[in-house]
Design a protein around this nucleic acid. Structure first.
Length: 697
DNA sequence: GAGCACTGC
């Protein structure tokens, strides 16, 4: 990590002065991307490899992998671990006799870019000796691939057909400290696999903070004799530049304002270096972008101009690309971003980072079963990661918009996703992998039992597990195989008997894609009008079906999409998801049928999976859930946001903002609930059942 | 008449 020299400045005063700059040629790697700086200096690939800090540790790493079942590697940014360790292993014979070395990544782009770099270093074509496997793109060869990069989700899928992962000799879990849902699932499962496969070697790549926890988790030594440890830690220095950290001397009342001020001050006092500011959401980003542009206008005859750009997930791809463009010498790039810039993307040239100290995270409330987004203070680990973004090209500066005292009070690390999510899918997949007692599964961070019970309850209601909490055959097993939430999987598996599987495939695929309807800020009215052409009284599901069918009818034309304010790339994605789901559905002999225009049957089929998300209109105009009598509202983006709201609806998800909104809503008939979900409405204590029934009247 | 961090199968 970069040296942290705490410094202080007063909010509202000039930003601290200029530091020393050094620029040198280097090759860097981190969060999956591989960047070769200064291409004018030409050195051979082999020379480049040998200059990476990890190269000095080659023999020691190989020795540890030989000796220990699990090696935790703390590799700092730019040390070369993701690209070099797999090659060391291959060179040392770990890929002999048909064995494969696997490296998992939390993100698709990372798997692809690192794989390509390694293939290049080995002078081979991607897909032969070195390959990758991500959803919708398997670039490996069944006989020749020896080094395989994959997303952690794909590895979990592989376990379903090969529970002991027999083809792999070594599995490296990269970026394990990010603690994504799938990383945590894999880590728990690998511990189990190790007991049956002592020959398997694990390498866990992690940040300093979590290394000890990973080491302890995998250490099977029950004695006090350290020489019998089965896991160990090795640290490798990185290639980053020092980043000076500045705290405010007093708390900041309004971080939006202070972000703008800090940008202006940096621009006035620092001669060069691009700026990256972290905020929590799209609104804040757009707000700060316009405020800074406004300020820039008031700055007279500046030699150095500012190019202010927003960056967040919902931004159209073409606009996202702008942050990667090089700016001219007399222009400073100022990127205002959400958390997307913390790990998912890397913008080159950043020297100044501004950290507002907050992040928007998903939170799950096991009492209500609702998932929502909440703004919370960042963890120290996150703050460090953000600061580190300033030290990739030369020494940089990070301005934290909070006091050092407040930093000390922040949690060490972010709560793992496993403890912030609805567990139905996780439980279903674990059961499918032979973990019968999920409550006793070896979780790195166990979720609350309340959340577990809530997940089990839903799976039971869907018929995926029986009275003994065992996976049902074939329904439960089949549900687990779909890359879908259990409620969707159930809907799809039932669609054959309803006679509408073609339509259900479309609707489910469309619901997996965000932002199908575009709404450019300057053409809102026209976009709204275009959307209304597809809208129907039954609700959002059938509306999406109409959109997809029209898209197919026009020959999947991108121009047509553009004219109708539809997200072309999103529709392409829906097509590939639909194809994949259809393949799996056919495997399970789901009859491929078209309802021939019978909309009722489609709606009933959806209720067969989504009965637990039912709500009834309340005289106040809001809705109440059947299960918990919880108050919800129709989201204004729904086609059902109309003067005469329907009496009964089911919804796809809940969005918690100012109010608790239902999104993707469909009109139903109350009698369908009794008919299609008898289980669910007979579940619970007498009193609970009585209450549910009363609400159904 | 409101407004959605980010991934992933």
């Amino acid at each position: 990590m970069s040296t942290l020299k705490p410094k202080f400045w007063k909010p509202g005063t000039d930003a601290p002065g200029t530091g020393l700059h050094e620029e040198r040629e280097r090759i860097s790697e981190g969060s999956g991307e591989v960047v070769v700086y200064n291409p004018h200096v030409s050195i051979s690939i082999e020379q480049q490899r040998q200059r990476l800090p990890i190269f000095k540790h080659r023999n020691h790493i190989l020795y540890l992998v030989e000796k220990y079942e699990t090696v935790v590697i703390v590799g700092e940014t730019g040390c070369g671990k993701s690209t070099q360790i797999p090659q060391f292993l291959a060179e040392a014979g770990w890929t002999a006799e048909g064995h494969i070395v696997a490296i998992t990544q939390p993100r698709r782009v990372a798997a692809v870019t690192v794989a390509n770099r390694v293939a290049e270093e080995r002078g081979s074509i991607i897909g032969n000796e070195v390959g990758y496997n991500i959803r919708f793109d398997d670039c490996t060869d069944a006989t020749t691939t020896r080094i395989k990069f994959l997303t952690d989700g794909v590895l979990v899928r592989e376990m379903m057909s090969d529970p002991l992962l027999t083809k792999y000799s070594v599995i490296m879990i990269d970026e394990a400290h990010e603690r994504t849902l799938y990383t945590d699932i894999i880590v728990g499962l690998l511990k189990k696999i190790q007991k049956k496969r002592p020959d398997l070697r694990l390498i866990i790549s992690s940040a300093t903070l979590d290394a000890e926890a990973f080491k302890d988790f995998f250490n099977n030594n029950e004695t006090n004799d350290k020489s019998k440890d089965t896991s160990t830690i090795i640290s490798v220095e990185g290639r980053t530049y020092p980043v000076d950290i500045y705290y405010t001397i007093s708390p900041v009342p309004d971080f939006i304002k202070e972000t703008v001020n800090t940008i202006v001050k940096i621009h006035k006092t620092e001669p060069t270096g691009d700026i990256l500011a972290f905020l929590t959401g799209q609104d804040e980003v757009e707000n700060v972008v316009s405020l800074v542009i406004e300020q820039a206008r008031h700055m007279s005859d500046k030699q150095l101009k500012m190019k202010v750009l927003p960056m967040y997930g919902g931004l159209p791809a073409s606009e996202q690309m702008r942050v990667f463009e090089r700016t001219s010498k007399n222009t400073r790039k100022v990127v205002i971003a959400t958390n997307i810039a913390e790990a998912s993307i890397t913008i080159s040239g950043i020297v100044h980072v501004i950290d507002c100290g907050f992040v928007k995270l998903r939170a799950y409330n096991p009492n209500t079963g609702l998932e929502g987004l909440v703004v919370v203070p960042v963890s120290q680990a996150s703050a460090q990661q953000r600061s580190g973004r300033a030290g990739r090209v030369r020494s940089g500066k990070a301005y934290r918009l909070y006091t050092e005292e407040d930093f000390d009070k922040l949690p060490n690390s972010t709560v793992p996703e496993m403890q912030r999510t609805n567990l139905a899918t996780v439980i279903l997949q674990l059961k499918c992998l032979g973990i019968d007692n999920v409550l006793r599964f070896n979780f790195l961070s166990p979720p609350s039992s309340k959340a577990m019970i809530r997940g089990l309850e839903l799976l039971y209601a869907l018929g995926a597990i029986n009275d003994n909490a065992k996976l049902t055959e074939p329904l439960g097993v089949r549900m687990a195989e779909f890359p879908l939430d259990p409620m969707f999987a159930k809907t799809l598996l039932t669609s054959g008997t309803f006679g509408c599987s073609e339509e259900i495939l479309t609707i489910i695929a469309m619901l997996q894609v965000q932002n199908i309807f575009l709404s450019p800020s300057n053409q809102k009215a026209a976009a709204e009008k275009a959307k209304r052409k597809f809208s129907v009284a039954e609700g959002d599901h059938i509306t999406l079906l109409n959109v997809y069918e029209a898209y197919i009818k026009c020959g999947k034309s991108s121009r047509w999409c553009h004219e109708h304010y539809l997200n072309y790339r999103g529709l392409c994605r829906a097509t590939s998801i639909r194809d994949q789901l259809k393949k799996i559905a056919k495997k399970f002999k789901v009859k491929m049928l078209n309802s021939e225009g019978d909309v009722d049957v489609i709606c009933r089929c959806i209720v067969a999976g989504f009965f637990s998300n039912a709500a009834k209109l309340h005289p106040s105009g809001s809705y109440r859930t059947i299960r918990d009598n919880y108050t919800l509202y129709i989201h204004p983006t729904s086609v059902l946001y109309v003067e005469k709201p329907p009496k009964w609806v089911i919804f796809n998800e809940i969005l918690q903002t100012n109010k608790d909104y239902m999104r993707d809503i469909m009109v139903i008939d109350a009698s369908w609930l009794y008919e299609l979900a008898p289980h669910y409405y007979q579940y619970g204590t007498e009193r609970e059942i009585g209450a549910k029934k009363a609400r159904l009247e």
